[in-house]
Each structure stands twice: as structure tokens, then as C-alpha cells.
Design a protein around this nucleic acid. Structure first.
Lengths: 129, 129
DNA sequence: ATTGAATCTGAAATTCAATTTCAAAAAGAG
DNA sequence: CTCTTTTTGAAATTGAATTTCAGATTCAAT
């Protein structure tokens, strides 16, 4: 199953950075991967709390940061003030269409757009993210 | 000169909404249009203060909102926490390439991407912004 | 197992931009 | 001029992001 691979990636990252694999980090990792929505810290915190009410919001915040560094999560910025995070590992790069009124959004993968975006980035010395 | 047209647009918008054309609003409008950068409220406030130190930040904030409503300004969201505003009137829709490390960015207009974005939006019932 | 050092955690504090509040000032109507 | 409405801006509030710090936990070496 794919989840194990991602877990390996996370474990690998932690080892590389000489960080510990704690039960909090594991739980947060699991909760995060178990959804396919674009969670805010608060929302993920709520999820995690259902599994283990003792975990603090700060730890969720920090773990999410680690997950981003490990390329497992990706920060996505819809118009609002809250940051959201999506699973990056195993997901193609894609765009989001976000309603400026209600925040509703959809994910869209368009090969031709991707290709042009890549070219555009290359042209200006950027790396697509 | 183009600026007059934009001013007309602003004045028209204010009239429509039965709002007054005050010297503060005029000054903020002028300062905003005089730059081609992507200003935050704070930055625009600084500019305005040089012209009239009595203008308050709140008024800048509110006027910027009006300018957005009038389609003269557009909120753009680079990764950071601060909102930025660019001149929308008279500017083609375009994308931004933003460095995730330093925030440096460039504007890029790519006709083919624009076209595909339009199609994508249409396909899902969105209106490009 | 014990100790000592380093890491991790989470409640609370802090930060900082965004937004709201409210009383005073300015503008408009009569 | 007087009354009413709008506008203004200093100050307060909000809310998410981030930092702080003391206590808990883990690790490594005995």
C-alpha cells in the first residue's frame, strides 16, 4: 500500500534531520494522509484531537511544517487568511479554481497548461512548485 | 491620458454607490495608480503619508477595498501573510512566478496559457479573475 | 537501571496584518 | 445656520501564525 511508502519517506526525512519519530508525529501524519481535503492547521488539529485529545495545536503546526519540508505536504493558498495544506506525495502538480465569493474550489489537471507552466518557469529560472 | 479614464471609472463607481469623492480618496487613488508595483496596505499608506501625513491607514485600507470593487485594483496573493494590490484597470490578466524562498516575483503573460485557463474556467463554470 | 544531555511537547504569550469600533470632523440637505 | 448623514482616523479588536519556555520524554552512555 502506498501509505507505507509515504511513511518511509517521513521516517527517512526525520532520520536525516536527526529528529525523533514520536507518537504525536505519527498520529498527525496519519490523520493528515487520511484525508484528501485541503486542511488548515485548525482543521487537522480537530481531527488529531479525536484520536488523541492530548496533542497540542502547536505540535500539529510544527509537524505540518516538517511534512512540507519532507515534500509530503504542500501549502496551498486560497484567497483567505488561513493557510491550507494538501497531500503532495503521489499527486501530480495541478491548479485550483477558487471561487472568490464563497471559497469553493476544484482541482484541475490540464496537461497542456502544465507543460506551458513548466516552460514558463524554465524560461525565467524558476522551478515549478 | 489614461489616468483620467481610470479616475472617471472611480468617480463613476463612487457616484453609483452614493459615496463621496473626498480629498483622501483622491490622494490614495493617485498614489496607488502612480506605482506599478504590488503594494501592501502598509506600503501604500507610507506613500500617501508623504503627500498628506494626516491620512490614516484605515482610510487607505478602505479605499483600496473600494478600488477593488470598482475593478481598478486587484488583490494578489503571493505566499506571504500580507495582501498586495496591483492595478487591474488597463492590465491584461497574467500570472505571477513567485520565489518560495525570497518572495521575488515576475509577471508573465503567456497567451497560450491564458487561453487554456479561460477554457478551463469555462469548463467548470468559473469566471477568470 | 541511572544519569545527564538533548529533544519534544503544549499551554500560554506574542506578533502582526486585517478589520471593526466609535467619537469627532466634514459634507450635504433643507 | 441646523440637522442628518457620511467620512475619517486613532485606538481597540480579532484571528491565525509563530515563538517562548518550563516540564515531559527520549536517547546515549555508563
Amino acid at each position: 500500500m502506498k501509505k507505507d511508502k509515504v511513511m518511509d519517506l517521513f521516517v527517512g526525512y526525520l532520520r536525516e534531520k536527526v529528529l525523533q519519530i514520536t507518537k504525536q508525529r505519527e498520529e498527525i501524519f496519519r490523520c493528515f494522509l487520511s484525508t484528501d481535503t485541503h486542511l488548515s492547521v485548525e482543521e487537522l488539529y480537530s481531527l488529531v484531537r479525536k484520536k488523541d485529545p492530548k496533542v497540542g495545536q502547536t505540535t500539529v503546526f510544527r509537524t505540518l511544517k516538517l511534512l512540507c519540508e519532507a515534500d509530503i505536504a504542500k501549502e496551498v493558498d486560497f484567497g483567505g487568511r488561513v493557510k491550507r495544506y494538501e497531500v503532495k506525495y503521489g499527486h501530480k502538480h495541478h491548479d485550483h479554481l477558487v471561487c472568490t465569493k464563497c471559497g469553493e474550489f476544484i482541482e484541475a489537471v490540464d496537461e497542456r497548461i502544465e507543460e506551458l507552466q513548466d516552460k514558463l518557469c524554465k524560461k525565467f529560472g524558476f522551478i515549478p512548485f
